[in-house]
Amino acid sequence: MEQMTQVTHRYLRTKKKFPSVWCSGCGIGIVFGAIIRAVDNLKLGKDQIAMVSGIGCSSRMPVYADFNTLHTTHGRALAFATGVKLAKPELHVIVITGDGDGLAIGGNHFIHSARRNIGITTILLNNNTYAMTGGQYSPCTPFDKFGTTAPFGNVERSFDPCDLAKGSGAVFVARGTTYHVIQLQKLVEKAIMKRGFSLVEVVCHCSTIYGRLNREGTAVKMMEWQRDHAVSIQAAQRMSPEKLRDKFLTGVLWDIEFPEYCEEYEKVIKRAQGKVNL
């Protein structure tokens, strides 16, 4: 544990005054730790990483990280990141977003970044709510659950971010949780090393806002719920549909090969310069 903390500290900005904006018991710090350990394990230099985020609780992550960091406008992280990646393809671009930021206001950029297959690693922290603004229902608030703007229960269906990414053309789609931290680190490592658009959805507990509104108990209770309801995709193959009914899948859900956008654009440059015949 002490060793792990030392690794984390090496990647934090010392000039930035802690504590962070996150509530006690929040899951975002766990995800942050997993990302840092993934970067450390992959031996990527801090200068090689650009961390880009939008607006919301999870999007406050980059300011604490000692990388090239860009905290953008609400929902637009992927569009800013597209500019960063295309202008400097040698950077590892990691986008930190949430369910509201990435799938509601930023939904269009999400599907088009996946379709374009630009080499961006997207970590989507799904806490089922708009936590920073106090708990309004999001595109990932489950049917019948509560938000401050759904005081009588949510009557909208929720997105499955992984299905959405897969359907939009992402080449790597995975889901982890804030309970399964070692698995999460491995998934982030795989996503960073994947050429093309990759998504890791993190089922992230929010006990202060979403948990209270829905009487889900403490952070520990919410993480225990994750433990009891997450099924790895390998284990799921041996389970009956009956048993899987109230479960969700974790692990690498989708992994295919397709040419990455920036690499393809290099070919466009060669064609335009007449180095390759059309």
Binding site: V52, A79, G83, L86, L91
Partner: peptide, 21 residues
């Protein structure tokens, strides 16, 4: 590099991202 984005919001965002890079 030229890129056609999904809308003007994304276009301006990409311009800013590229400039910072």
């Amino acid at each position: 590099k030229f890129i056609q984005m999904e809308d003007e919001i994304a276009s301006m965002a990409a311009v800013i991202g590229a400039s910072i890079a």
